[in-house]
Design a protein around this nucleic acid. Sequence first.
RNA 1: GCACCCGUAGCUCAGUGGAUAGAGCAGCCGAUUUCUAAUCGGCCGGUCGCAGGUUCGAUCCCUGCCGGGUGCGCCA
Length: 569
Amino acid sequence: MFRAVLTSRLQAAFTAAGIALPEGFAVSVVIASDTRFGDYQSNAAMTLGKQLKTNPRALAEQIKAALQVDDLCEKITVEGPGFLNLTLSATALGQKLGVIVKDAYLGVLQVEKSQRIVVDFSAPNIAKPMHVGHIRSTFIGDCLARIARFIGHTVITDNHIGDWGTQFGMILHGWKTILDHAALEKDPIHELVRVYKNVNAQTKADEAVLTTCRSELVKLQQGDAENLDIWKRCVALSLDQLRTIYAKLDVHFDHFLGESHFNDQLAPLVENLLTSGIAEISDSATCVFFRDVPELADKPCLIRKSDGGFLYATTDLATIDHRINAWKADEIWYVVGAPQELHFRQLFQVAKKRGQTTVMRHIAFGSILGQDGKMFKTRSGESVGLLEVLDEAVERAAVVVAEREGFSDDEKAQIAQVIGTGAVKYAELSQHRMTDYKFSWDKMLALQGNTAPYLINAYVRTRSIFRKLDGEVTLTPVLTITEPAERALAIKLAQFAETTHDVLVDHRPNLLAGYLYELADTYHSFYEACNVLRAEGAVRNTRLTLCDATSRVLKTGLGLLGIQTTERM
RNA sequence: GCACCCGUAGCUCAGUGGAUAGAGCAGCCGAUUUCUAAUCGGCCGGUCGCAGGUUCGAUCCCUGCCGGGUGCGCCA
């Protein structure tokens, strides 16, 4: 990629000019902030000038003189206080595009050191429907997993479903007292939710019901055959439904290792932590204290309740053991909401005390808020169901597709499916993950502007050109780029390489979404300015190659976001 | 009380220690016998919450304040 090559050239220029770089000083080249000055820029002279207390502009001139980029750039200029601006040559761009269209990775470099990365995301609860709150973890996690795989990591996706919470006390009691078996057969989740809500309301009104629920839970945890059987049926019914949703979403997991999977390991784990001195008893509960970590000094991590029950953190610790021992994880990524930040800080600290060196990251995200600006409450209040959102999105897309001619009903349904689902995913992934946002039907399901349909439409336009071509076309590796619109498109295409890697620096899918939007925008402009099929000779060939590259980058890039494309719309 | 996140155009949101802070939506004007208009071009719209500090340069980094959200031993 150009940025990496230019960076190493710049590094060499410093050496050639005899300029010693201070310890830890990283020479950097970035994509130009203002394209009037060039395609890439380096502010190194200004940053370094400050440190060395020398004139930054003179320093920039010195570097410029030593910089060997004749094969890449047609212009190098020094501007203002010491900006070093680089403009790529049409030849270099043309060659690059020739390479990109032939490369399975479209110019994206594979990582030098491939890691085994476990991505933990989605994690819905059993016996509850997935709602809009699950959108963020599911889509962000899926996207990050796809990108990590694409650049050469070994990725293991794991859905740590909540199949063993205290909520089962209520479901068990409800199952035995108020379950409607016919309703369960028709719509399992709906009936389970009804039962749960009903019992939940009962417990609020009657203390005795709560006690009964607790004892049902204890029986389950002690292996009571009847309760265990009911629990297994709940899990099976829920998993069926979940698989349907994930298929619809085109989201795939290598494992569904829910909390229950680790039950047997919790007691020995806690014993082990006690004997090794990592954990201690405090107020009859078992805790891990972090007295050497100032910000956690008064925030111990509880791993066993005073009644002997285990907690969220206990299961997570056992899960870490499994991921390290059985899966040999180099890294574990937790795509979980920002409110759980403290939990993960504690968890990672315990792992550190245990000598576990696996890299663990909490990839946090902000909350989806209701119209009142408050968080959706999943326990008491209502939320919008995920299926409901998807169905509505597909329906809205179908309204637009219905106006089109030349499609069978099946094709129309297929197109609406791709566009509706894509719109929902893109609405999430184009947003910075830390931003809280209010759930809005209109924004989530918009079909114009900065949306998935806009990107898919750009792809459709590239495909339509190739459908209309007569005969075989040989795309030439020698592009002759002349028009500004061609040039702008070529540069954008080349920058797919930079963007894809940038996403994983801070785990931010919105960087890729933003890039693809700009690419589609650039392509739409190119499309209006440069007719492809009416052009001739080398110009036509160049434009066809640009269209081919755009087509591939859009399809691949959208694929990395988890968004499918359609050939026509 | 302490900790973390957020505050940018009417609305929803991007963005970066650098050059004139950008999109979409909404509003207005224009382009189509189309290589698919789910498109393109243009106009309108900002004291980047407030006040200091560091810097050649701060919307970005630091401190304080204001406003909103979230979390802080026996839920997950």
